[in-house]
Amino acid sequence: MVIAVAILCALALAFGLLLGYAAIRFKVEGNPIADQIDNILPQTQCGQCGYPGCRPYAEAIANGEAEINQCPPGGEAGIQALAALLDREVIPLNAENGEVKPKAVAVIDESTCIGCTLCIQACPVDAILGAAKQMHTVIADECTGCELCLPPCPVDCITMEPVKQTVMTWKWPKPDHSTQAKSKTHLN
């Protein structure tokens, strides 16, 4: 009886020490959940979620401080992905954070631009090119459409233009029952 209790206690102690050692030795650097959330977020860095960038929002979600429905650029698909990752309910987008808009890029009216550099400072991804008293322009490929350059512009020369669908960016539509009309039907 005593021997059995002693053996069990010894085992418990040994495993406890082992676990304690493992917790220190194999400690995961950073926050893997926040990383995974960050990978789902669209990285527009627009701040519509109320956090200064996607990473802080990801950390807030990971810490349970924020809901998963605060990212308008991520849209419905983003919320679904987050819900699947965190095993939560899919909830509709919080209207306070904005609405889902089609992807757009900022365009500077170059004849109106006074070269104040305010938009350059506001752009989170360095997608605006220019210098003081020189005309600025947006690198369309790098623009995430976050709209952060709009408020600082003193002459309102920046507009958001929706990205036009081209033959190159076109996607096959999701099939439904109406697409059943197939060319193969007459082959038989």
Partner: peptide, 20 residues
């Protein structure tokens, strides 16, 4: 499209981080 978006997001992230 998802892969292209992911690649674009990755670039945006890098640019944001380098700016920060």
């Amino acid at each position: 499209t998802r892969e292209q978006e992911m690649a674009a997001a990755e670039i945006a992230k890098q640019r944001f981080e380098s700016k920060t």
